[in-house]
Design a protein around this nucleic acid. Structure first.
Lengths: 186, 186
DNA sequence: ACCTGAACACCGTTCAAGT
DNA sequence: ACCTGAACACCGTTCAAGT
């Protein structure tokens, strides 16, 4: 059953880093945070655990790459009112949370991984709020409100998922109410 | 250096469950989530790891007890306007997050531990919103907004803590803005 | 009832090798 | 450059004892 040491012959199609990321997300989604180990992932890929380290450095590096893959494409649309663009950005983020609840939980427990995507989303929202005409101070306040609300909804969603199908959880309604409040303030 | 097997003589003052909880929080606050292990806690307490299991069942049981100790006393004041009571409840919760950021992160990664305290706080806020005169539907919406905002702020605070002192992070200002918006809607 | 050591089945990661 | 097995220093937890 053991495979020979060293680099395998090229015919035996190598597992690409993209394969590793896709399988890592499958494993995390299907089995949860506790079952998501380097060794379990290697076994699922039929490769040596150390091969993963070669491509991603360490476990946090792998998680970082997974987060980039999942959240990297989340961005605001180029057209529309600032309000609509903010709403679309936040809904896009939330849609990915629904898709990969385990990744959310994992990110929130790894301080060294979390910041990148969080900062990018935060800065997008801040830009859009200034575009919408808020003062610097108002903008700071509403970045805080919108970002924290979104992260909190992510935690709640991720916790609630995996017990039956994800509920139509009123995220969109709550977001609309928040953005109505924001427009009323200006 | 090894201690004899079995129950120690009574003179050697036993470590109480309360001591274990207090030391567990010290360890988590001082060293972070990754360093918070049953074995490290046992060494700090100068006892056998298995003694902890005797009192708390398992690691999640210990974390649950820590969470009850930290968040169990968080409650709304008996007097004041509903708005003031909601604000006080949420600030009391946030104050505990600032005190034990590591516990917040730990809770958000343990699905089996999280629900208890979260549900209690959620229900308190729901009651206060109904007291404030919101309809059932409005109340559901604003529970969602306030609870998710609070949890998101907790994540942000817990992530930001431990790099220097915790910033005066505008939580109170954002909360006021939210509650102003809530009053404007009614 | 309360506490213990030893053992089990795992982890992430380092290292020195292989091709 | 890319992949490997073996080993290291850990984990949480079970179990069969001890007093």
């Amino acid at each position: 059953m053991k495979r020979p040491r060293g680099r395998p012959p090229r015919s035996k199609a190598a597992v690409s880093p993209e394969d590793m990321l896709a399988t890592a997300l499958d494993l995390l989604d299907a089995r949860g945070v506790d079952a998501f180990t380097m060794r379990a992932l290697a076994e699922r890929l039929q490769i040596n655990p150390m091969t993963i380290y070669h491509h991603f450095g360490d476990r946090d590096g792998l998680i970082r790459a997974m987060s980039e893959r999942v959240y990297g494409t989340v961005c605001a649309p180029q057209t529309g009112t600032p309000r609509d663009r903010i709403a679309a950005l936040m809904r896009a983020y939330h849609a990915q949370v629904l898709r990969h609840p385990g990744l959310t939980l994992l990110l929130f427990s790894r301080r060294t991984v979390f910041p990148e995507q969080a900062r990018r989303i935060t800065e997008s929202i801040a830009r859009l709020l200034v575009e919408a005409g808020l003062t610097a101070q108002q903008s700071r306040l509403w970045v805080h409100i919108l970002v924290d609300f979104t992260h909190g909804a992510a935690v709640a969603t991720a916790m609630g998922a995996r017990d039956g199908p994800v509920p139509a959880d009123g995220y969109d309604d709550a977001l609309d109410e928040l953005l109505n409040g924001l427009e009323g303030r200006q």
